[in-house]
Nucleic acid binder design. Structure first.
Lengths: 367, 367
DNA sequence: ATGAAAGCGCTAACAT
DNA sequence: ATGTTAGCGCTTTCAT
């Protein structure tokens, strides 16, 4: 072992810092304390005197300091990586979904990984691979969160999964959703309030749990209003425009045709409008049409659709935040349990609903 | 100065590494070289012997190594922050846009900042603020890149701006786009090839430069085919469904009504289909309808639209990559100049086009 | 063509 | 309650 008795002359080395953004050290100097204390203040830890904390905070705002994300996650030892899975990305849903995720991810400095797939079956191996690659958690919009295998897999993997929307096996994973039952109930009640009695309903894809809930909400509102439910008026759809057309054709060919149709999503409602127009029914004067989701379609077509707005963006943002929270909790040894959170929806009234026409009322009354 | 003649007993300290992901040092050991050489290989730098490079690459794939992003940007000294501006986000456009950006950002480890705004006027102060906050560059989809003030501002700010789509003041900023003229030309030629002669055209929003180019493409194809252009057949729209309906009503009320209508985007084309259906025209047998963009609308409605597909996702990904490249070039003192890149489009043939019916041909021939 | 050393800005672990 | 030290994994700078 060679022991030097004279230190080598330390060469001056050009600093590598190009931008002059203040660092934690600058703040420490300004606040006359150590960088560590500044770090504690930044991270809201305890064990800092109020006075010191104040000085640090002042220094921070004086220097306009903001922590360097890269350094943070490097020193912190781990990075938050969140996988955004999506299959069947209805574009309008997807954009809201992505914007919400992106905003929150920026806030908490999470790294987003988008992963599109054609089906739940295809998603399975992808998810396994991502989990092995060290993904902190998955965000699952429908219909992925309606797939039992997907949910089982996340459990096997020990991965965090948060659904954006209702999903199978609730309780096994976190979720942010609206109350689909109540929303459909409200919409139906709104239509009843307009004076309609014969109200058609188009069910969504039977494999998604939201579909059943919306149907039940419709049924419950009818019952509450003392309206005899008629099986003729309830038609199966699959959330697609095409399925909406077929359903509308059935509904509008009925001897006593409905004066209103409530479709389980906007694409199907748009199809109802198209079919109605083709047989020269005016919307909303001859027939009221309501949708669900408030996707771009709802406000693109004419007349614009009365529909239910889900706060997709907010739901996704919260899902990202939740993964951050849960990951941190796990790291500190806790075992946080999955929580479902219900967010408020809005009934957006636009141009596609109205009171039933006199003629229609009479016809139904007479028939 | 105190000179120690004996090294202090170095305490063992628990490693802070929690995950066991391989590091550059692991690779170096495996490849029997220094971390520096590995770094060079990773970054595709020169001055590495082919043999060495091969060993390193083998080690990398053997260990399944992937570089730590945080460490990279920390050591690299600066972070790539890219602002995604959007105003009037047609949802289907937006989702493609975001997915493309997200994918590439993940690849080059850029931080994305989404910024939505209601208008170009509103965008101006936001952009100024972002630039002051140290944004590396802006990505501007239409109609923001059609606004002279926005472009001027980026210039004043000395910021990098990349348009996704054609924009005003070309040459002043980078852009990734398709050849709108040629695409419209091709589509028109396709319609002519089907046998149509009376072909209506609906112009897009006059404030977007794409609108003019598409119109010119239509005109050129007509001329090339020796078809006399008729002013009656060219109607102004604004890219919205509503404007498409108004235009379609005009076009379909013509004495000699067109046997085909080419709308400058899908929303307007969808409106044409709706109007046609209302007057019991079959699409495509009574009238051919074509769109542009291949947004979700095109494949949602029935019949699905024949349209032009722009590779939005790819365009945005390239825009992100370009900002990375330009930023790096600037840092090393170069002054890279803005480049426009034309990407290939596709004519997607679906169900909304057909040869003109005999009746229609005769009528037009007779009239 | 390759490597050693010195940080990048921050935090975990260990003092005090 | 606060400070010290030693990294996190990588790249830059400088030396060979």
């Amino acid at each position: 072992m060679s022991i030097r008795t004279t230190s080598p002359a330390p060469r001056k080395r050009a600093s590598r810092r190009s931008n002059t953004a203040p660092t934690i050290a600058d703040v420490a100097r300004e606040a006359q304390c150590s960088p560590m204390t500044v770090s504690r203040v930044i991270n809201g830890e305890g064990n800092v005197r109020e006075e010191t904390r104040g000085q640090v905070q002042q220094a921070i705002s004086k220097l306009n300091y903001s922590p360097n994300r890269a350094a943070r996650s490097l020193a912190g030892g781990e990075q938050l990586r969140i996988a955004l899975m999506f299959d069947n990305p209805s574009a309008s849903y997807l954009s809201e979904f992505l914007v919400g995720a992106l905003e929150e991810a920026g806030r908490i400095d999470a790294h987003l990984e988008v992963q599109s797939c054609e089906s739940a079956t295809e998603a399975l191996p992808l998810m396994r691979k991502l989990a092995e690659g060290g993904i902190s958690g998955f965000i699952l919009p429908p219909p992925l969160c309606d797939d039992q295998r997907v949910l089982d897999l996340t459990k096997d993997l020990g991965a965090i999964a948060i659904a954006v929307g209702p999903g199978k096996a609730e309780g096994s994973h976190g979720a942010f959703m609206i109350d689909d039952f109540q929303a459909a109930y409200d919409m139906t009640q709104h239509i009843i309030g307009l004076g309609h009695v014969r109200i058609g309903f188009i069910i969504g894809n039977p494999e998604q749990v939201a579909s059943g809930r919306r149907l039940n909400g419709y049924r419950a509102a009818l019952e509450k209003a003392g309206i005899e439910p008629s099986d003729d008026l309830i038609v199966q759809g699959r959330f697609t425009y095409r399925s909406g057309m077929a359903a509308a054709e059935k509904l509008l060919a009925l001897d006593q045709r409905p004066t209103a149709i409530f479709a389980s999503n906007d694409d199907m409602a748009a199809a109802v409008v198209a079919v109605a127009h083709r047989i020269h029914l005016d919307v909303p004067n001859d027939i009221t049409v309501c949708g669900f989701d408030d996707t771009a379609m709802a406000s693109t077509i004419w007349p614009e659709l009365t529909t239910i707005r889900q706060p997709i963006r907010e739901m996704t943002a919260k899902a990202v935040a939740a993964i951050g929270r849960i990951t941190r909790a796990r790291r500190s040894g806790e075992k946080p349990k999955a929580e479902q959170t219900i967010l408020p929806y809005t009934l957006v009234r636009r141009e596609s609903d109205a009171a039933p026409s006199l003629a229609a009322s009479k016809r139904n009354g007479a028939g």
